[in-house]
Structure formats: C-alpha cells, structure tokens
C-alpha cells in the first residue's frame, strides 16, 4: 500500500494575526507556523496503515519554507518527502495543480489530505486534486478500513451522523480531526528522519483563477466586557447569574 499525504506548513490561527500593509495578505510578523492540524491526523492515519499492511508513505508539501513540516512528518514515520518550492500566494486550484504535476510519476493507492487548512480554511485542495486525477473521493473521513483494492470510509455529516461509503483504490480521502491520536515525534524519529530523502520538484504554476481584493478584520458586535481582577469578575458574574435567577 503506497499512500501520498499532503501536508501544509501553515500558520497557527492562535498566533498574532494582522493584515499586511498591502491590505491583501496576512502579515508574516507574529505568525507561528507548524504542520496544519488536520494533516497531523492524515500523516498518522497513513503511517498506521503502513504499519499494519506494509508499503510506503510519501509526504508532499508546497511552499519554499515547508521543510520543518516535511521533516516532522518524516520523524513521525513517513518514508520520504517531496517538496514543491513554489510560494503559495495563489489559490487552492493552483496548489492542487502543482501537486498533480509533482506526483505524476508516483504509483499510489491512496492520497490523503487534511479536510482543510487551519489558516485559509478552504477545504478544497484534496478534492480538486481528485478531480484533476479523475479519482473517486471521500471527504471528512473519521474512520477508514482498508481492504484489497478498496477502502471503506466513514464520513462525518452534520449533527453527529456519519455516512459509510466504499471506494475503489486508487482514490483520494480527506481526513477529519479526531480520526486517531497522532503520535508525538520521538528523538529517535528525528534522528532517523535526517537520513530520509527530501526531494525537490520544481513546477511552474499557472495563472490564478482568483484575485484577492482586500483583507481586513471582520466587523464584530462586541459582548459587554466585564473588567476587574479575577475576584471582582467572579463577583460580577455571580450578580448577573442571580439577576437571571440562575443561582
């Protein structure tokens, strides 16, 4: 079983976020990057399947600065990495396109992507890639059973419902958080990762189908803020609860 996993080196939405001076992009200052949270689950799932059935896990990252994330995936247990050193100031379509080009000589059984990126939240790249490769797809998988020539996936729907579907391989699956418990990177893993292959594949992206006109802080209606030290805050909260007959 050979599995390709897409892993994005992405800013954490909990880092300090502001708009850059061009008014069209996120300011890089204050951003803390790490592997996209959904992709941790995708890498873990692929490694577990490999541990169970044998095969190979290849991680793919797009971006000039994505090495840390690819190394992390190798340290978790992926076998090799493909880096596409193209800067991602373009849309998901282009990201999928360069990935398609870079993996064209790889024979694979499955491609895993995260359900979405933690920064841009597009939830597109995996599905776009499936369409470009003309492969069946299932999104938001919360459980996978891999059998000979097919995968049985449980997909997450709204309201706690799931849908079970069956796909032939090769196919593309996007992984929802919580599908497994991703392992921590061990010192041994980091050491082993050093000798693993990280290949760069240069691809030129085509023209974007989207144009960013403006980026800004969303207007928010604000809650009534309660100020004071913790004891005063607690006092005021209790008053509010009392007024409402909640205590």
């Amino acid at each position: 079983m050979k599995i390709i996993v897409l892993a994005k080196h992405a800013p954490d939405p909990e880092s300090e976020i502001s708009v850059a001076s061009d008014g069209k992009s996120v300011s890089q200052s204050g951003l803390v990057y790490d592997i996209n949270d959904w992709d941790r689950y995708a890498v873990e799932e692929a490694i577990r399947i490999k541990e169970d059935k044998g095969g190979e896990v290849v991680v793919v990252g797009v971006g000039t600065n994505c090495d840390d994330t690819l190394r992390k995936c190798l340290a978790m247990g992926a076998d090799r990495a493909i880096k596409i050193p193209v800067d991602t100031s373009f849309d998901a379509y282009t990201t999928a396109e360069v990935i398609k080009e870079a993996i064209k000589d790889e024979q694979f059984d499955m491609i895993f992507a995260g359900l979405m990126s933690q920064d841009l939240n597009n939830a597109q790249v995996g599905v776009l890639l499936a369409a470009m490769l003309d492969l069946p797809v299932a999104t938001a998988a919360t459980e996978l059973k891999v059998e000979d020539g097919k995968v049985i996936a449980r997909r997450e729907l709204e309201g706690g419902y799931l849908e079970e579907v069956e796909l032939p391989t090769p196919c593309v699956i996007t992984i929802q958080s919580g599908i497994n418990e991703p392992r921590y990177v061990s010192i041994m893993g980091i050491k082993r990762a050093k000798s693993k292959e990280m290949k760069e594949v240069s691809v030129s992206p085509s023209i974007s189908t989207l144009e960013i006109e403006k980026m800004y802080l969303p207007p928010v209606k604000k809650a009534e803020m309660i100020e004071g030290d913790p004891s005063q805050v607690a006092e005021k909260l209790i008053e509010i609860l009392k007024e409402r007959g909640l205590i």
Partner: peptide, 29 residues
Amino acid sequence: TDVVAVDVSDGVKASRYLMQGKLMVDLKL
C-alpha cells in the same frame, strides 16, 4: 468556499473568513 457575502456589481466577488474567523477576505472570481 464558505462564502458569507456576494457582490455582482462588477464581476463576481465573494467574501469569506480566514484564520478560523479572525480575518476576512474579499475575492474576485
């Protein structure tokens, strides 16, 4: 994806959130 406003006065423009709701972007398709 996940669009919350659409403007068609000059081509098609869509607004959506980024960064789990902390930023917003206007895109031209």
